[in-house]
């Protein structure tokens, strides 16, 4: 059952990561790419947590928190940068 869960979640997360990478590649705007990279980060976090749950250890927990912090700082920074640049360009 452990191996079955690992295989099923690995397939599902791989498909989801492929979809997010596709959106990063073709995304029409910068904000779409930021959003897709945020989703990719969430998928990575889910993979780390699934590894912790299946193998019964807590080594990745701080990494998970740091990952959410990085995603937060990244999206906020890029969002501010985008709005500032567009407003200056329009004036």
């Amino acid at each position: 059952m452990k191996d079955l869960v690992l295989v099923v979640t690995a397939v599902i997360l791989s498909l989801a990561a492929a979809a997010a990478i596709y959106r990063i590649a073709v995304g029409p705007s910068l904000l779409d790419r930021v959003l897709a990279s945020d989703v990719l980060l969430a998928i990575l976090g889910a993979a780390l947590a699934i590894d912790m749950a299946v193998n019964r250890h807590l080594n990745n927990l701080m990494l998970l928190v740091a990952l959410s912090l990085i995603g937060f700082i990244g999206s906020v920074t890029v969002a501010r940068f985008v709005s500032d640049r567009r407003e200056q360009g329009r004036d």
């Binding site: 059952m1 079955l4 869960v5 099923v8 979640t9 599902i12 997360l13 498909l15 989801a16 990561a17 492929a18 979809a19 997010a20 596709y22 959106r23 705007s29 904000l31 779409d32 959003l35 897709a36 989703v39 969430a42 998928i43 889910a46 947590a49 699934i50 749950a53 299946v54």
Partner: peptide, 25 residues
């Protein structure tokens, strides 16, 4: 635990499908 893990992974898949198929930001 298996149900939680698979449904949690399906959430990621839903996000991926939504990212591909939805029309705007």
């Amino acid at each position: 635990t298996a149900v939680f893990l698979i449904v949690g992974a399906l959430m990621s898949l839903g996000a991926g499908i939504g990212l591909i198929r939805f029309p705007d930001l």
